[in-house]
Design a protein around this nucleic acid. Structure first.
Length: 435
RNA sequence: UCCCCGAUAGCUCAGCUGGUAGAGCGGCGGACUGUUAAUCCGUAGGUCACAGGUUCGAUCCCUGUUCGGGGAGCCA
């Protein structure tokens, strides 16, 4: 039987009464004497294959009796309504061929496993239903992000991975040998997006970024993906409008197209529905502080938010909340100070509900050449590496605004995951670079 | 960098006051023609992370090390 004639499991309901060929893996095996139930998985879905004496060939019965979990198989049979479950289909097997048997015990069982064990076996764990659902939602989040920005006229521009300088200090960079020199893995595409915005107007990049922070928490990876839009001649409000409409459209897309995946994850979609439409609440740093006053998360003016502040604030709303105009001293040097209040920066963070933390950070860029030169010196950054960036101020400087959206944190929130490492196929953390 | 927790069968764990170890799942063998984490019977499987110390005797108490997990700071 040539492979071209195979049917994907997700399409089976359109083939009731027909003979089909499935190619997949045996996910689960139950038997009752001469009657075998094989759960077949092909990446698009699962279906029960029933191997019954009198219907299946003797060879098929023999194969069903001996087949190990996760063996790859070719199944020939007819599609029927499930004998016990309303609305489902099953396959009455005529022929079953083991293409490649599982040669050792499959490490993953039906019962619970610890995190370390699952992560060691991430290459196999991906086959399980939860990672399956998360990866499909991740793909939808990325598709929706691009669709939203492309639809607004943004141009996708890819930022480099290798670079010679840090945007926010050098302590958290991964050095890489580069011929006789040393370069670093990129921790943001923002500076390059500013250059691209001056060439193309509205741009975004989507790619991996790297931070050598010694963080071992549920919100941190050393390699994570960011979506970074940047708009020329734009201000803080433009950035806030965009981050809000972007996140809302992503939520709407996931809710529309990924219901089965959310069900697999047992994610209560009702908790996401409010976030699928705008507006989201917007608080200044001062207003946010006032909201925290009298709670355990209260902090004095001038201090940056930590996890307790983010969690306390997010618990007040059922949508993400935008906090803007933080004290300039706690934000990156490239942020523009508020001309009406220089002690605060025209920056904004979006904090996800349910304690998922900061998923977006951004704002208006600082266009003041002399100020940037001074701050680069103050931060001890290598001036030569920033010459090209300062050129953006020398030749037709413009107001510029943008932000970075952390994909894994966003996906972790949407999927209700306990840790961002489940939001990416092959996570990289302080203690894990394999598989 | 700091704080907390953990390491016992392939996996998840229990193991009392110190006397050389158990369960469930998985594996293997068997029974079963409608199962859904199937069920039932049988069975194999252990350098109790590593190195010291205390003790007649240490999985257990103490010290150190390694590895893992969670959190703080920092960040998306």
């Amino acid at each position: 039987m040539p492979e071209g004639t195979r049917t994907w499991i997700e399409d089976l309901s359109q083939h009731v009464g027909e003979d089909v060929v499935l190619l997949g893996w045996v996910r689960h095996h139950r038997s009752s004497g001469k009657l075998h139930f094989l759960e077949i998985r092909d990446g698009t879905g699962n279906v029960q294959a029933v191997v019954k004496k009198g219907v299946a060939s003797d060879e098929a019965l023999e194969a069903a009796a001996s087949v190990g979990i996760e063996s790859s198989v070719e199944v020939h049979g007819s599609v029927k309504a499930h004998a016990r479950r309303e609305g489902e289909v099953e396959v009455a097997v005529a022929e079953l061929r083991i293409l490649a048997p599982t040669v050792e015990d499959y490490p993953l069982g039906k019962k619970e496993h610890g995190t370390g064990f699952l992560m060691d076996n991430r290459h196999l764990w991906l086959r399980s239903s939860r990672p399956w659902a998360v990866m499909r939602i991740r793909a939808e989040v990325i598709r929706a992000c691009r669709a939203h920005l492309d639809g607004l006229g943004f141009v996708g521009v890819d930022a480099p991975i290798l670079g010679s300088a840090a945007a926010e200090g050098t302590a958290t960079l991964f050095p890489v040998e580069y011929y006789d020199d040393q370069v670093y893995l990129s921790q943001t595409g923002q500076l390059h997006m500013e250059a691209a915005a001056q060439a193309l107007g509205r741009v975004y990049c989507l790619g991996p970024t790297f931070r050598a922070e010694k963080s071992k928490t549920r919100r941190h990876l050393t390699e994570f993906w960011m979506l970074e839009p940047e708009i020329a001649f734009a201000h803080l409000d433009d950035a806030m409008d965009l981050m809000e409409s972007l996140v809302a459209s992503v939520l709407a897309s996931v809710l529309e197209r990924c219901r089965p995946e959310l069900e697999v994850l047992e994610r209560d979609a009702r908790k996401l529905e409010a976030a699928a439409s705008t507006p989201y609440p917007r608080l200044t740093y001062d207003e946010a502080l006032a909201r925290l006053e009298g709670t355990e998360a209260a902090i004095p003016w001038g201090e940056d938010f930590g996890a307790p502040q983010e969690d306390a604030l997010s618990s007040l709303f059922d949508t993400p909340v935008l906090v803007h105009r933080y004290p300039a001293a706690v934000k990156a040097f490239y942020m523009r100070p508020d001309p009406e209040r220089p002690e605060v920066a025209l920056g904004c963070d979006m904090i996800a509900p349910e304690g998922y933390g900061e998923i977006v950070g951004g704002g208006e860029r600082n266009g003041d050449l002399a100020f940037l030169e001074r701050r680069i010196e103050e931060e001890g950054l290598p001036p030569a590496a920033y010459e090209w960036y300062l050129d953006l101020r020398r030749y037709g400087a413009c107001a510029s605004a943008g932000f970075g959206l952390g994909l894994e944190r966003t996906i972790a929130w949407i999927c209700g995951l306990a840790h961002v490492r489940e939001a990416i196929a092959f996570p990289r953390t302080m203690s894990r670079t394999s598989p």
